[in-house]
Design a binder for these strands. Structure first.
Lengths: 333, 333
DNA sequence: CTACAGCATTGGAGCGCTCCAACCAATAGA
DNA sequence: TCTATTGGTTGGAGCGCTCCAATGCTGTAG
């Protein structure tokens, strides 16, 4: 249970501690002979460098901290994939911490991440107040994903929710739909842009928007549909605020004896793995998640290397994924 | 961008560095007067302790490393919740790293985690070879979740897959089913115990087991069903190796004009959030995921504190969650 | 044969912290 | 009055490493 140090390796290889340090950092100014001797000794002892001591001594860090607001959401997993890809190829490690959607726990996660003095921080859809982010931004570079900010030292990466909603409306209109309702995400992140995009697109087509208050869950989607049916105001197409909501909507429609897409078309948002299941096969809007992560990591590393001081605001284009929940209205297919 | 050190706080509070250290660690042998003075100075400077320097100096760590083999799987998120809960209440922080299901990447993640010299490591369903785990176990305490091990210095937490399969079979038999097929998980983790449990339970009921080779995906589940239909060997009930497989099976059954559960009953395994969707509403086997995490953290902390040296092998009981995909055979309901 | 590069190698200082032995009143006991 | 004892406080050493200035060593030019 006691790990060997550089000193041990140096002793065994018959060189100085400083030389071992050079070898470990891949310095070119070490003779081939010594290098192999050191590596051999390290191997035999099972030595691996102590990242914290290194970071302490060098006053630099090769660690990027990532705060994931909700580990349960697969959305973030793909963003992390993108971050990891870029970080790794540039010689950085990442450490993840999770906030569990609670501001208090998230704050603690932030504190914990900060105590490792990472080179920078990427926050995925954080729920902590902007002031907490601003304070952290005084200590190290920070990039926000799926959350906007006006702080000039903070970079952001977001999807263009307005455009995504527009894509969905355009698709439905091109199929011949005229009555299209939007099940709104309420307070949820990104719900605002999606709603705005929907309204704008409808008006651009000369159609009347119909916004129905709802939430990011399948139960809420089902509830919204039932109320529309009760009202007698059920349209021929539905644009849900996200995939879960859409799946709930579909299930309520089927419960009411309506067929999807023959009687009613449904479009989701996010292209979660759920949407891709053949049993669901949901037409939805895809966000370039891995690209979010890549751009976030790239932006962060630029700051870390002092290559840039102006803030970057990425707004990525979502795309439409057509599956089997959309068709022309009235079973015309 | 430059963080204050203990020295700065000491200077400002007019005390020694050692005294600040005592205050930061909440020592009782500090006069109230000095304590408040130090805390005030720290607050004004925005000081927070440097975790790495602390850990280096104290030769101890309050960090638990967690390696998640696949961040995309919500299963692990709940395990992490359990770990986090216990760790936090015992004054430990956790840092997470992901292996992305690839042994090479996982190895790197392990290396990275190790370089922080955490107090211990929890590996969630790791895919690295046992030797790599054994080697790491020489350096610090390790707990494995959803993977077994024979190494005596490593603790494990698993679900009792045999019992879970038995629960499912018992449920179907009690509904009146006699022909029950198992869509097998093949090489997948935990597929073995589930298959064994199924076979044992069938034989205990005097029924003939029918194991169909399949995989942990919805496409594989659908494929298996199609081949059963083509064979003319479709039973009245299906026990899938996991929820995804079950959903694929359901969709293939419906495509073939069969109703679930009226014509065929289907049981999944894992109780993922997918199963709970009303559109799916899958009868399935639930594993106490948060409990996995809690027990893993507890076991690890015992080792960390040298309270135990004998290995612990937790085998948790799964439970049956009845939803709407199971009913008596032949539409007798 | 000396001088001077150029290169590989090394000891020492120091990163921010903890820990320990020593220290310093102030009070208690003899 | 002198010595113990106690509670609060302090300087110094050292954790494992990096960085820097200095050192030794070749080989080549003068």
């Amino acid at each position: 249970m006691v790990r060997p140090t550089m000193e041990d390796v140096a002793l065994r290889a018959g060189v100085s501690r400083a030389l071992v340090s050079l070898v470990m950092r891949g310095s070119p100014k070490v003779s081939e002979m010594r290098r192999t001797a050191v590596l051999k000794a390290a191997e035999e002892l099972g030595y691996s460098p102590h990242a914290m001591a290194r970071s302490l001594a060098s006053r630099t860090s090769t660690v990027l901290g990532v705060m994931v607001s909700d580990l349960h959401n697969a959305f973030f997993a793909e963003v992390v994939d993108g971050i990891d890809e870029v970080a790794r190829e540039q010689g950085f490690d990442i450490i993840i911490n999770t906030g569990g959607r609670s501001p208090a726990r998230e704050r603690r996660a932030l504190e914990s991440l900060l105590s490792f003095r990472p080179a920078g921080l990427i926050l995925l859809s954080p729920v902590v107040p902007a002031t907490a982010i601003g304070k952290a931004a005084e200590q190290l570079p920070i990039v926000l994903v799926a959350r906007s900010s006006r702080v000039s030292t903070v970079d952001t990466v977001n999807d263009d929710g307005e455009q995504g909603a527009r894509l969905a409306v355009d698709h439905l209109v091109s199929l011949g739909h005229k009555r299209i309702a939007h099940l709104d995400g309420g307070e949820g992140t990104q719900a605002g842009p999606r709603r705005r995009g929907y309204v704008t697109a409808m008006e651009a087509h000369g159609l009347a928007p119909q916004v129905v208050s709802s939430e990011y869950t399948d139960a809420a989607g089902a509830r919204a549909i039932r109320s529309l049916i009760a009202d007698g105001s059920l349209p021929t197409a539905i644009l849900s605020c996200n995939d879960f909501n859409a799946v709930g909507a579909i299930s309520a429609l089927e419960d009411a004896g309506l067929r999807v897409p023959a009687d009613v078309s449904v479009v989701g948002y996010d292209n979660t793995s759920l949407a891709a299941l053949r049993h669901v096969s949901l037409t939805t809007i895809d966000q370039p998640r891995a690209e979010f992560g890549r751009l976030a990591a790239l932006a962060l590393l630029q700051r870390v290397r002092d290559e840039r001081t102006d803030p970057v605001r990425h707004l990525l284009n979502p795309s439409l994924v057509v599956r089997n929940t959309t068709a022309p209205p009235g079973g015309l297919r």
